[in-house]
């Protein structure tokens, strides 16, 4: 039984979500290969070849793959899947976009957001915004899973896998790339950060959000996150949203500022190691998961915190 892991990267750097997905795949099979797709991704492939436990790295390059068009990516992986019993994909927005296509093309279920591989055919996944955990068993020949990477440890470095080129099948005509608008930031990415400072509706405006949340994040070397309410109101970009339908994070330290703690938000951060809540309402549900709570107006609490941090 061999497994194929799809690498997560930004074109230049391999994300450690790949290492975590390798760990999940190694629980299924000792023969784990990694696919790196994109354009100009040789260095990413080299980085993948150094993950311990990886047998072989496959590299597929084309302009369409660079734009991450689901039809193209899924066609490539579905073609490769004949050689594998399992395909494991990090549950990023990109992975969620194409993974179900592979499952449908192979006529198998998608095992979505897997948090534990019990054995080769049994998996645990959260349902209802993480308020319940479902253990499912499948007898299907091929397994296609997206992996909730926060639930797995990163595979170590130290491998020396061979790197092989594969060709992507011809492009689909029905979808065309028009444009993209990427948020650039010098701060760590949400998925990789050790510390996250998240702001909620309480911040009231984009100016206030930037003036309060950003300096604290910079002082801590943290990534910035947000609640849905803050994103909907335009205080923060969409990919900052933490929660059931946004990003799932599990940093060492998560600081929630002016966030009430709706279950949809908790679904995205309650596995953080240490949670801090700063909220003026002592009854706010966020305090029920917080290790440390400050019942305070952020307008005084954050400047105080900046001072106390020195």
């Amino acid at each position: 039984m061999a497994a194929l892991v799809i690498a997560d990267h930004d074109g230049a750097h391999l994300r450690d979500t790949t290492h975590k997905t390798v760990t999940a795949a190694l629980a299924l099979s000792s023969d784990v290969d990694v696919l790196v797709y994109g354009e100009g991704v040789k260095t990413v492939a080299e980085a993948a070849s150094k993950i311990a436990g990886v047998r072989k790295v496959l590299v597929a390059e084309s302009a369409d793959l660079k734009q991450d068009i689901a039809e193209d990516v899924a066609a490539l992986i579905t073609g490769l899947a004949v050689n594998y019993d399992a395909v494991a994909i990090p549950a990023s927005a990109s992975g969620k976009n194409f993974a179900p296509r592979i499952a449908a093309a192979l006529d198998v279920s998608l095992l979505s957001d897997v948090i534990e591989v019990v054995d080769g055919s049994t998996f645990v996944r959260p349902i209802y915004a993480g308020n319940a955990l479902e253990t499912v068993q499948t007898s299907e020949a091929k397994k296609v899973l997206t992996v909730r990477t926060t639930a797995f440890k990163a595979a170590a470095e130290g491998g020396s896998a061979s790197v092989e080129t594969v060709t992507a099948p011809a492009t689909k005509a029905g979808t065309r790339f028009i444009s993209e608008e990427k948020v650039t930031s010098d701060r760590p990415e949400l998925g990789a950060a050790k510390i996250i400072v998240s702001g909620g509706r309480a911040l009231g405006s984009k100016e206030e959000f930037d003036a309060v949340i950003d300096p604290l994040a910079d002082k801590l070397g943290a990534a910035v996150g947000a609640s849905r309410a803050a994103v909907d109101a335009g205080y923060a970009p969409n990919d900052y949203q933490v929660g059931q339908t946004g990003k799932v994070v599990a940093p060492e330290l998560y600081i929630a500022v002016g966030i009430s703690g709706a279950i949809q938000h908790l679904a995205g951060m309650k596995d953080s190691k240490v949670i801090v809540a700063i909220n003026k309402d002592p009854e706010a549900p966020i305090f029920s998961v917080a290790d440390y709570g400050l019942v305070a107006d952020y307008k005084t609490a954050i400047p105080d915190l900046m001072k106390a941090l020195g």
């Binding site: 349902i127 319940a132 499912v136 949670i275 002592p282 290790d291 709570g293 105080d304």
Partner: peptide, 24 residues
């Protein structure tokens, strides 16, 4: 159904920690 649900369980509970007096 292709998937057999073996069980549905509650996630591990996180308990509330302590409320602190101030930023320091």
């Amino acid at each position: 159904p292709r998937l057999k649900v073996l069980k549905v369980t509650e996630p591990p509970k996180r308990s509330a920690g302590k409320k602190l007096a101030d930023a320091a």
